[in-house]
Each structure stands twice: as C-alpha cells, then as structure tokens.
Design a protein around this nucleic acid. Structure first.
Length: 789
DNA sequence: GTACTCGTCATTTTT
DNA sequence: TGACGAGTAC
C-alpha cells in the first residue's frame, strides 16, 4: 500500500466541524471548482483540509499536487497546518508562491529556459538600479524616461505575458519604451539575472514551448490548488491553465470582493474566466463568517453592495449582533489620534491586550500623526511594512559581495560595491570600466581586468580597481572551498564592510544586522539541510523571501498598518482612521468607476478585519503635504446603515486641541446641545465644541468601551446618531464658506459645476469645483466669480 | 568623499 | 511636512 493510503482512523476527523459548504468543497472529487470564500469563512482551512483529505483518501500522492499562493507567509501557513493535520513530510511538496515554484522549475530546466544554472534574481530595487545603469549606457534622457516608469512599463508588459515584439506601440513614446524593454532584456540575459516578472514569464514560456516538459508536468500535477485567486494577473492565470491542461483539476479559492491589487495587475476578472474555462458549474460559496459579529458583518455587506461588478455573495454569522460600530468625527488629525489613543487605553482597561488591536489607515503617510500620539501616550505599537531585513543597505552590500563571489560578472553587484566601502574608485574610474565593458562587450569585472592588463586603465585608478578585483577573486576562490557561513563572514571582513561600519557613527545597528546575516546563513544551512544549501540557494532565498525576519511579533503592542497590509489578518478591535473623501477613497481613484470599486473593496477588507469592535474615524482638517486640507466624511461611512452605528461625541478636551471648537462655530446649529459633564476639569464649554452635532439626536448615554463602568476617564460622555454625517460637515462648513460641498454652482467662464472640496481660510480660501465641461479645478474664492446655481 | 542645499514629490505592494 | 535624489562646494 502507498504511504499516502487512506487512514480511516485518521481522516474522518479532518472533516469534523466543517459546515456543509466547506465539507462539499473539501471532499469534491477530481474536478475543477471555484470556491468563493468570503472574509473569515475558513478559506485557508478549506484549502489545507482538502489537501490533507485528498492525500489521506489516497486520491493523490503528495508529489502529484501543486498548491500556489502569493506570499511566503501564506505558503508557510499552509505547510504548517498541513503538518499539524497529518504526519507527512511536506518537504519536497510543490507548495509555494508563484515565484518560488517558477524558480524551482527554472532551476531544474535552466538549459531549456536558456538560463545559467546560477541565475540570480533581481528584487525591485535591483531592477531599478539595473534600469538606471542601462539608461546611462544607452545615454537616454532619464528626465523623459523615468526609471520608475520604465520599470512599470516592463513589468506591466511581462505581467501580460508580452515580450517587446508583442507590445503594441502606436505612439513614439511607447515605441521608445519598447526599445528600452528590449535592451533591458538583453542586459539581463547577458548578466544572467532575472527579475520577478521574468521568473513567471520565463517559466510560462518554458512550459509553453517545450512540449515534452509540458506533458511531463501535466502528467504529474493532477491537482492544482490556487489561493487568493482574485489576485492573479493575466500571466499567472495563463500559467495555471497551461499546467492544468484539460485533464487536471484546478481548485481555485478566492474572493472577488477582496480584490485590492488591481493596481499591480491583478485581474479579478480571472474568476469569471475561470468559471468559463474550468468550473463546469462547480462554484461553491462560503458565506458563513466565523470572525466578525453581526453589526460589523452587516456593515461590510452594506458597503460592498454598492459595487456593481460582483459575483455575488453575502456573509452571515450566527454570532449575534455584538457592539455597534463606533464612529467619531474628529475636528482634526490630532484630535482623531487623541481619540484613538484614549479609546485604546479604555479598551486596555477592559482587559483587552494591545496585540489584539489594530490601527489601520489607507496610506502610510497617515501613520505619523498616529504614532506621535501613541508615543506621547506611552502606548507600545508596531508599524508593519517598513524596511525588510534583506532590503537593508548593509545587507544588500554584503549580498552583493556574495553574489560576486558566486559570479564576478554580475554587473549589478559590481556597480553596487565597487566603491563601497569607499576605496578611492570614483565615478570617473567606474565610467571608464563601463566604457571598456561596452567596447569589449564583456562584464565590468572582465573589462576591468583586461583594462588593467592592457594598460587602458593606469595610475591610481588601476591600483585601486586592481585591489578591488583582488578582493572579488579571493572571495570567489573561497566560495568553492568553505561553507556558506564562513564565506559570508569572509565577505563582511575582506570587503571592508565591517571596518567601515565600525568607524561609522551610526554603524552599530548595521554591524548587528551583518552579524544577523551570518546567523541567517547558518539557519539557512540548517533549515534546508540536504537541499540546495549552496551560495546560489541562499541568494535566491534572500531575493524571494526578503523579510521573513519578523522581530518582536510576540510583543504586546498595538499593530499599525495600511489596510492593504491587514488583508488576511484579524483583530478583536480595529480602528480605521482617515475616512475622508480624497484619502479613502483616495483622490487618485475617484475619477473612474473601477478605481472607486477597488477602494470600496478595500473598505470591505478593512471592516471585515474586526471581530468584536470596529471604530471608524475621520478628521475635519488634516495636515497633508505640509498644507491643511479640509475633509469631508468618506462616502463609505455613509454607506453603512445608521442603525448599526453609534456616533461618538467628545466634549472639549482637557488640553484642548487647536482647531476644534473654533472650526465649527456653534451659531449655525442652534446650540441646544449641552454637555452635562466636564471630563477632566478643563474649561467645559461643550456647547461650542459639540455644537456641530445636532443635539436632538444625542442619546446622552454614558459610554465606556466595556459598557460596564460608566464614564471612564477615557473621556467620552455622549453618543449621538445624527441623520447623515455628510450633512453635518456641510452645516459646519457653511460658516466658513459661502458654498456647501455637493452644491451646484455657476462660474462665469466654466459654467455649471459642483463643489467638491475646500482648502485654506480667509483670503486663502479655495474651493474645488468639478465643472461639467472643464473638469476639476481649484478656484480662489476671493477672485472666482462663483454663484449658487 | 562628505556635507550641504535645492528641487521635487507625495496611494496601495508581494515576489 | 519631510524624504530623497541630484548637484555643488570644500
């Protein structure tokens, strides 16, 4: 009997506690299927349980199955769960990221793929420098052709599966870009390096063009499982189709409502295509949510229902309604931050740990104000999405030496460290080497060597460059003799990196990281024992898994991250900040429908991260790009049904946050709102501070996060439920400006338009108007002849 | 080679 | 506002 034969004593337990849909998905026979898995519906569980089930029932051997994810984290998670479910050696199984699996295939068939066995992988930063280098060589104006944009162009084309000759170029600019793309490909090929997109495209072509290989792998992978299918781009989907052929079963799990990576080429439309191409009606919806309480889920459903292009899905839970969603209209960004701080402290007092709370925002720039407030309050926090370990400057430098040890002809690595640490090889000398390399059509290293030999490089430059070459050659010799860990140590030492950082004022951290790198090599050797522990293996690992070094994950700290980064995670309490038009949805997205729909999915993702408590907040004014921006509440807040929400009103705060009361004068709103208490003994003219909230709706109920103790000193006394938030902002704003947002106006020259936004005060006041024919414009109120229409 | 000044720019991001 | 890159001055 096979080692993967069913174990009746074991596998029924796998299926325990699955709901009917999950069970159906897990136990599907060998057919293709699309599993529409809503947020928190047990997606990963279904995926891994299916794998375990297939193996344990003997339907497939571990080797005949391929499961693909987007992130290393997801792949790892799958492997971990799998090992926990059944005694199995997951090593050698084809479970990994698209890039990881493609890398594996390309290494195995490097000849057929026309790559050196030791090909190196360029990460985004490496790719950028490769592009810059090429721009110099080709003498292209990098003002007109920006490296970043060229990168997008190239990656975009590759993500579509397009080689230069297949890219349609109807205008001159595009033609130039295509030319550059072609030159870039030639450079990469010459240097034996491959960027991320190339990894996939090259692998796709390998299988597409080589019938024998295609046949072999189709024969092998009877079951293909895809995670986060909505995030696949065109090329990735083609790759899956190619591997699947007609026979194999593709089990695709995804959620079109959580497609938030359209901007980097993901095509949620692949899900519809998949239904046509594969599913034969096998669509399973997982709609029971095990994460969030009812109100939160209802809010998420209500928001996402505003999107038109959906496959259709409605989450439900039997967990009960839970807490209302708390919404806070802050006067300013500082006020918002302070509110969040106070609320977090209050939650902490109820016994919730910081680690169970997350503070989310749309864009990274928003974190500063929040961090500042958290820091002042002495709350531990951790910001996700910073620099990753293998992306640090000193690490990249050390890796460059390692790469040169493996392959001295790696021009990217050569350029990076030829004069780092500084060894007197200036820009002139480097240029000289590059020119020679072009003339000889050789690598920088080879050009430098012959240049010195032929006395084309002379004097001081020759001495200095010669010394550098000597270091590289020495490392190369060592690479063949000593183990990876010693080699790394030698790199750090002989390159002079260690000495350099020893002298640098802020070098201590860098030295520590370099020591950590040496540790990482040791760890790598251990972890991958018996596998490819070579230098190349480690370098590949470094490019493909840039940041698995997550320090301090276990500390009890509040988690700060963008909404994007929060996808796939869950927290007891979620604070979603900056819910203002222009920020979320972001300005750059509001002009097209697809853009707004993706933003709305982002909102959906954000909301569904919360298990028990969800706080939404927005600020009437915020510092952005060094200027004060006046915001109105996000449309997404309006899309949440009022009965699910509780509006939190804060009386004047002890310290007083500038811009609060003054911004929203009481005069307009009638002022029958009176706070009954003063919190913390400050001047408590709450009528001016709170006046912009319509008093008639306030419930005057004391609020505390626990709902157990009244009126904690977190400082919130009231909750109100005004009709709509947008209206409130307009009322307030009407004092400062003669027009309200949303109001139709008439301009002498531009004609009819609608008011979108305001900026500045007094004589600086400007108004943003969208005109029917002339688009969106900012007009100075002082000069523009605007009248109400 | 480094320290400075100036200009520019400003979603989201994994591999 | 503030980060970063390019260019300039020593």
């Amino acid at each position: 009997m096979n080692s993967f034969a069913p174990d009746p004593a074991h596998y029924p337990r796998l299926l325990e506690n699955l709901n009917p849909e999950q069970l159906k998905a897990v136990t599907l026979p060998r057919v293709s299927a699309l599993v529409l898995a809503g947020a928190g519906s047990g997606k990963t569980r279904v995926l891994t349980t299916r794998i375990a089930y297939l193996i344990q029932t003997g339907q497939v051997s571990p080797a005949a199955l391929l499961a693909v994810t987007f992130t290393n984290k997801a792949a790892k998670e799958m492997l971990t769960r799998l090992s926990a479910m059944m005694p199995i050696n997951t090593r050698g199984m084809w479970i990994g990221t698209f890039h990881g699996l493609c890398n594996r295939l390309l290494r195995a068939h490097h000849r057929d793929a026309n790559l050196p066995q030791t090909f190196q992988i360029l990460d985004s930063a490496d790719q950028q420098s490769a592009i810059k280098r090429l721009l110099k060589v080709l003498n292209v104006d990098d003002e007109k052709f920006k490296p970043r944009e060229l990168g997008w162009f190239i990656n975009g084309a590759k993500d579509q599966g397009l080689r230069p000759n297949a890219v349609e170029a109807t205008d001159d600019f595009t033609r130039r870009q295509v030319e550059f793309y072609q030159a870039y490909e030639a450079q990469c090929q010459r240097e034996g390096v491959v960027d991320f997109a190339e990894l996939l495209l090259r692998c796709y072509e390998l299988l597409a063009k080589n019938a024998a290989l295609q046949e072999h792998y189709r024969e092998r992978f009877k079951f293909i499982l895809v995670d986060e299918f909505q995030d696949t781009n065109r090329l990735q989907y083609q790759w899956i189709k190619l591997l699947a052929g007609r026979e194999n079963a593709v089990f695709a799990v995804g959620d079109d409502d959580q497609s938030i990576y359209g901007f980097r080429g993901a095509e949620a439309a692949n899900m519809r295509e998949f239904q046509r191409d594969f599913a034969d009606g096998n669509v399973i919806k997982l709609e029971q949510n095990y994460r969030s309480q009812g109100n939160i889920l209802d809010a998420a459903n209500a928001v996402i229902q505003h999107n038109k292009d959906r496959l259709g899905k409605n989450l439900w839970t039997d967990a009960g309604k839970g807490e209302p969603i708390r919404i806070y209209a802050a006067a300013s960004d500082n006020d918002e931050a302070q509110f969040i701080v106070n609320e977090i402290k209050a939650l902490e007092r109820t016994g919730m740990s910081l680690i169970d709370m997350a503070l989310l925002y749309r864009s990274n720039a928003q974190s500063r104000v929040l961090e500042h407030a958290l820091f002042r309050a002495g709350l531990a926090y951790r910001v996700y999405g910073g620099l990753r370990f293998f992306e640090r400057q000193e690490i990249k430098h050390a890796l460059a030496y390692l790469r040169l040890a493996g392959n001295p002809d790696d021009d990217g690595a050569f350029s990076r460290v030829v004069n780092f640490p500084p060894r007197g090889i200036g820009a002139r000398s480097v240029e000289q080497v590059q020119d020679l390399a072009q003339r000889y059509n050789s690598s920088f290293h080879a050009a430098a060597a012959s240049g010195i030999a032929n006395a084309e490089i002379v004097g001081r430059a020759a001495t200095m460059i010669g010394a550098f070459l000597k270091i590289i050659d020495g490392l190369k010799v060592s690479a063949g003799v000593i183990a990876l860990q010693e080699l790394t140590e030698e790199c750090v030492e002989k390159s002079g990196l260690r000495a350099h950082y020893l002298n640098e004022r802020e070098g201590a951290d860098r030295l520590e990281n370099l020591a950590e790198l040496v540790n990482a090599t040791a760890q790598f050797q251990e972890e991958y024992e018996g596998e490819d522990t070579s230098l190349i293996g480690f370098l590949t690992h470094a490019s493909l898994e840039a940041g698995e070094h997550e320090a301090g994950v276990n500390d009890d700290a509040l988690q700060l991250m963008t909404v994007h980064a929060a996808k796939g995670l869950e927290f007891k309490a979620v604070f979603l900040s900056g819910l203002e038009e222009g920020l979320f949805p972001h300005d750059n997205s509001v002009n097209d429908l697809d853009g707004v729909e993706e933003e709305r999915r982002l909102m959906y993702v954000a909301v569904t991260r919360a298990r028990e408590r969800l706080y939404l907040s927005y600020a009437g004014q915020r510092m952005l790009h060094g200027q004060i921006r006046y915001g109105i509440v996000s449309r997404f807040v309006d899309e949440i049904p009022a009965p699910l929400c509780k509006w939190i009103v804060v009386p004047e705060r002890q310290q007083g946050y500038p811009g609060g009361a003054q911004m929203y004068p009481a005069s307009r709103t009638g002022g029958n709102f009176k706070a009954e208490q003063s919190w913390g003994g400050g001047k408590s003219d709450a009528s001016s501070r709170g006046a912009w909230v319509e008093g008639r709706d306030s419930t005057d109920r004391a609020y505390s996060p626990s709902q157990q103790s009244n009126n904690t000193d977190a400082g919130y006394g009231r909750e109100g439920a005004p009709d709509t938030s947008r209206a409130r902002f307009e009322t307030a704003r009407a004092d400062a400006y003669p027009f309200g947002v949303g109001q139709n106006v008439q301009h002498a020259k531009f004609g009819e338009g609608v008011v979108l936004n305001f900026e500045g005060r007094g004589i600086d006041a400007r108004v943003q108007v969208k005109f029917r024919s002339d688009g969106v414009k900012w007009l100075a109120l002082q000069y523009a002849k605007l009248s109400a229409a």
